[in-house]
Amino acid sequence: MALVLVGLALLGYGIRLLAGTARTPGQAVALGTWLLAGLLLPVLVLPLVGGVGLLVARTLPRPLRTTVAVGAGTSGLLLLVAVPGLAAPTAGVTWGGLLAFLGVFWALLLGATQSRIARDQRRGRW
C-alpha cells in the first residue's frame, strides 16, 4: 500500500511537470499524440509484429526458428535505436556502420546456432 501511495504522489508530481511543458495548444496536442501512440504500441504494433514473426517462423526448420526470431527482433531494435541518429546529419551515425554491425551480429548468431546444431547431432538428440 505504501508503494501505491508513493507512486500516486510521484504520478501527481509528473503530471504537474508535464502540464508545465505543454505551454501552447500545439505542444499539448503533440504530447497527447505521443502518449496515445505509446498506448497503441502494445495494443496494435506488438501483436502484429509477433503474429507475422510466428507465421514466418513456422516456415523455417525448427532449429532455426529461435535464431531467426531473435536475430530479426534484435535487428529491428537496432534499427529503431539508430533512426534518430540516422535522421540527424551531425550525429555521425551511418547506414554503412549499422549494416556492418548487423553483418557481424548475424554471422556470430548463425555460427553459434550451427555449433549448437552440430553438438546436438553428435549427441543424437535429433
Binding site: 508503494l3 501505491v4 507512486g7 500516486l8 504522489a9 508530481y13 509528473g14 503530471i15 511537470l17 508535464l18
Partner: peptide, 9 residues
C-alpha cells in the same frame, strides 16, 4: 516522473 510513479503503483 510520471513513469516512475505509475511503475510504483
Amino acid at each position: 516522473w510520471l513513469t516512475v510513479g505509475a511503475l510504483a503503483v
